[in-house]
């Protein structure tokens, strides 16, 4: 099955109906295991004590914040280059999720920072670049709302998304390029993770749970967006039949 086989929204919706219950079950199971490991099996950190447990939600949320934008950037290419009918649906559905995960990452990071660094916030490169990412998400959501035609909005948002994608390597490498209060990468490193397996395994399980949560919500939000476009198309059709002379209704690809 190629990606183009799901260019037909009805076929895509059928796939979502099949996949979603399994994703929900897997997500719930992963969260149950992850939270059990985080609170009942992971030891205290020798320096940070119990505050290390904030890491089990902060780090997956931060990863998701970046992964979500990567999904949007790929979707933007799908809109502009391959003109896949569901690409802008995917990007639009992902934006609020990305904003939410970035918000979680900023708030939990701040709550972790106060007892460890002595401050809730510093304007260092990592924190500031993640704040920029959050503002990018909000800007993209606003852009989609300002244009009534979802196709035009999708193209404009795709361009802005690709411009904003330059922030992703800045976020990732900010801790290496500049002196920051934020610690450098300790999991995804060329020489392997520097975290003990007792803490690393719960972290990875929670990361899996958050990833499954993202895909579950993303598919559900894409389904809603397809429904929204169908409603719009049907209303335009109704308006065209009521006022045939003045109507210029056009069908949307993602109907």
């Amino acid at each position: 099955m190629a990606l183009w086989d799901y260019a037909n929204p009805t076929r895509f919706l059928r796939l979502v109906d099949i996949v979603l219950p399994w994703l929900i079950a897997a997500c719930a199971l992963a969260f149950a295991i992850g939270l059990y490991k985080s609170f009942f099996m992971a030891p205290e950190d020798y320096q940070q004590g119990d505050t290390v447990r904030i890491m089990f939600i902060h780090v997956p949320a931060a990863w998701l914040a970046m992964m979500c934008y990567s999904v949007m950037a790929i979707s933007a290419l799908g809109t502009l280059v391959w003109k896949h009918p569901l690409a802008d649906v995917s990007a639009k559905a992902a934006a609020p999720l990305g904003a939410a995960f970035t918000f979680i990452s900023l708030i939990t990071g701040s709550l972790w920072g106060k007892p460890m660094w002595g401050t809730y916030w510093v304007w260092d490169a990592r924190l500031t670049s993640v704040l920029v990412l959050f503002i990018m998400y909000l800007g993209l959501m606003a852009l989609w709302r300002t244009m009534e035609d979802p196709i035009k909005a999708g193209k404009a948002a795709a361009v802005l998304t690709l411009v904003g994608a330059f922030n992703l390597p800045i976020i990732k490498f900010s801790v290496d390029w500049w002196n920051t209060l934020h610690q450098p990468a300790s999991v995804i490193r060329l020489d392997g993770p520097t975290i003990h397996p007792d803490i690393l395994i719960p972290l990875l399980v929670m990361a899996l749970a958050f990833t499954l949560l993202f895909f579950t919500l993303h598919l559900a939000a894409m389904r809603n967006e397809i429904f929204r476009r169908r409603v719009r198309s049907m209303r335009m059709k109704a308006a065209a039949s009521a006022h045939p002379a003045g109507a210029t209704a056009t069908a949307q690809p993602a109907e």
């Binding site: 205290e44 609020p96 939410a100 919500l217």
Partner: peptide, 23 residues
């Protein structure tokens, strides 16, 4: 027993749960 910084840990999980529930 989440130690002396229990409030920060509980606040972090509460915010996360709230945002996920809202989504």
């Amino acid at each position: 027993d989440l130690g002396p910084h229990a409030g920060f840990i509980i606040a972090s999980y509460t915010v996360t749960f709230g945002v996920v529930a809202a989504l």
